[in-house]
Design a protein around this nucleic acid. Structure first.
Lengths: 345, 345
DNA sequence: CTGAAAGCGCTTACAG
DNA sequence: CTGAAAGCGCTTACAG
């Protein structure tokens, strides 16, 4: 039609205004749906825009209105169950609002150092969601330079508003299950992430201790092991426990992924689950059902969803109505990896 | 220091220029590292910028230079092994170049329809990487409206340059392994993704047929089943095969995730792997080692890496030097789920 | 090597 | 309800 459309040049709002016979101002208002434009004009402008398949330039629009319509996501992993699910939840919420998600993944300490040093997200996002990453006070100071709302998902980071499960409660659910079954010799395999800061308080470990205390079961130092995150870590932890003079009859594992390693070690050692040893963990990742693992279920996607909504709210009203803490529920999913200890033991 | 830094207002390039005693033009050149600025001036400008912790506005810069320094990623999943790994690979390459990754995930047919109808990525990215998503001709036409370079990872999409494994070769590796072990009654469980277009040609299924033909083993229609993607699909497929009057002695499964469902069914049916039935698939996802699954390994992260590099190249020189096809290698990882068929069978 | 000026494509007070 | 104009914060020919 118009020569503009024919040439390679991008269609611009001036083109729309001209074709619709209105000023740029009116075209802009009609397109953005702001009030104070007659219905007829709005319709005409939009029809022209549609016809020329015009879309406003986010760069220009953002420059003029001082907003990016983008939110950043900072995370340490993508290809892990919790992170992937949370990310999907976040993306869905953002997409529904027409916001873009820009992804920053800092897997190694070096990536991480650089991220906080350079702050690549500066001036690029209206808000930031930190997923599953505890951050240090120094890092928090750097993050504040972004000058945007920050919320966290999957754990409390610094003192930003966050959505998470109640780790103490989840731990309690796992431990109570074991205690209820009659176990006394209960060990815990806890996780250390070699590439990450520590979470401020390890609530799952705390839940372990508290549950035993409440049940009047004396704590045994040799029953608490900390190993690197992941199946191999879980395996290592289990091997250590098996080498004990008096091994436990049940083990509470930090997370499903680690429990998978535990199960492998037990199978190779020729031990039967749950007859010789009960195993419970936290997550309910997809494989847990296949492996018949008893676990405490958490909804990672939901945490992403809620965090994204909190971020939206924080961006909209400057954090006025953003709850500091949002906890999603967890519940025990009893399966075949736990049972009462065998009588003889 | 300066009053600008003290007030809440963003530091602007004009502030830097003034503080350094140069024009905006020079400040811009010094900051962007373009030639034709004296070393002394460059150093001074940069020092000032550092001091005021200034960073250029991507919106303004993008507007002026007509580039976004962002690349889009379009995918149907995040929380699945292949996709998560590929995404990590892409992110790393982009981050190293200072480019941002904006993520579009279209999980449902509805998401997908809307994505291609609205093209939310328009004017927002310099290039697009499509991960693990075959697209239709109509969708391709829409995508062309973006007016940017498109590359694909994890399979051939329309006729964009792509990086992928050689599915036919991977299938051959799996099948040859089974044939070499002496199996004749070999079935295949193939995947249909209910939410997705079909890949143009199902090369893994083709490899199955060809391998049998080459080995002179007659094809049996009842040995080829197609089921929805995922462990449950795999389980369903295996159940169908087990209900056959003469079940196979080995099965080639489309992917590891599906094989996990197969293994579960076999365990519940009381069948031993590999004595009663051999199982091989494609991927080598992390759990395959835990489950002792024989599989053909592919490197998903590498495919992401290479796709990102291809996208960068396409953006830089308009696709001049971008190979149309990049294949990454696969290799058989023999483990405990395959063995020669038992003599009697 | 450096600067004045136009331009990138929008939005939004300010008037009418 | 509509328009003229300034401004958002940069980059880049064009001169010198």
């Amino acid at each position: 039609m118009t020569s503009e459309a024919a040439t390679g040049r991008q269609v611009t709002m001036a083109d729309i205004a001209r074709a619709a016979g209105v000023s740029m101002a009116t075209a802009s208002r009609a397109l953005s749906g702001s009030h104070g434009v007659s219905a007829a004009t709005t319709a005409r402008v939009r029809a022209v825009a549609e016809e020329l398949s015009y879309v406003v330039s986010p760069e220009a629009s953002g420059l003029a209105r001082r907003a990016t319509r983008r939110v950043g996501v900072l995370t340490s992993h993508i290809a892990r169950w919790f992170f992937g699910e949370a990310l999907e939840g976040i993306e869905a919420v953002l997409a529904a609002q027409g916001l873009d998600l820009v992804l920053y993944c800092v897997g190694t300490p070096e990536d991480r150092r650089r991220f906080f040093a350079d702050l690549p997200a500066r001036r690029k996002v209206d808000g930031l969601i930190v997923v599953g990453m505890p951050i240090s006070a120094a890092e928090r100071t750097r993050l504040d330079l972004l000058g945007v709302a920050v919320v966290a998902a999957g754990g409390q980071t610094a003192d930003y508003p966050y959505v998470s499960i109640d780790d103490a409660e989840a731990g309690r659910q796992a431990m109570d299950h074991l205690l209820m079954l009659g176990h006394q010799r209960i060990a815990m395999i806890d996780a250390i992430d070699p590439n990450a800061e520590e979470w401020p308080v390890e609530l799952r470990a705390l839940a372990y201790t508290r549950a035993l205390e409440r049940a009047g079961v004396p704590l045994r130092e040799d029953y608490f092991v900390r190993v690197p995150w992941g199946p191999d870590g879980g395996a290592e932890g289990m091997e250590r426990l098996l080498s004990l003079p008096e091994p436990p009859t049940a083990v509470f594992v930090h997370s499903d992924d680690m429990a998978y390693g535990v199960l492998r070690v037990l199978r190779h050692a020729g031990l039967r689950v749950p007859q010789d040893l009960s195993v419970v963990s936290i997550d309910d990742a997809p494989f847990s059902r296949l492996l018949d693992l008893t676990t405490v279920r958490q909804d990672a996607r939901l945490q992403g969803t809620l965090a994204a909504q909190a971020a939206l709210a924080a961006i909209a009203d400057d954090g006025e109505h953003v709850p500091q803490e949002t906890l999603t529920t967890t519940r025990l999913v009893p399966r075949g990896s736990t049972a009462a200890p065998e009588p003889g033991r």
